[in-house]
Amino acid sequence: MLDLLDEIERWLTEGHRVALARVIDVQGSSPRDPGAAMAVCETGEVRGSVAGGCVEGALVSEALKVLETGAARLCTFGYSDDEAFAVGLTCGGTIKIFLELVS
């Protein structure tokens, strides 16, 4: 998390908008525990991770929506999702992620 905040601070100092995503709940098998975090800069740069790499791509587009609207959002990724085949966790678990704009 310290590495992430170092980077977030740098992006903000450069005048960029930044979104922070945090795993807040995990059901079943999942690579990372709650608390795992990922930061997305409006330039498209990404730091950190919330899973094993399987949902990070989809999460970037969610983060870009947060950057656009400024509104926080909750996302769920997993097999129970309609989009399971697109962005599901290959390990079969479900993770809930909270995304917010950092100011």
Binding site: M1, L2, I8, E9, L12, V102, S103
Partner: peptide, 14 residues
């Protein structure tokens, strides 16, 4: 960074 996240950053650094 402002508010609580700035305070968190400060705690992590220290």
């Amino acid at each position: 960074m402002q508010g609580v996240l700035a305070a968190a950053y400060d705690c992590l650094r220290r």
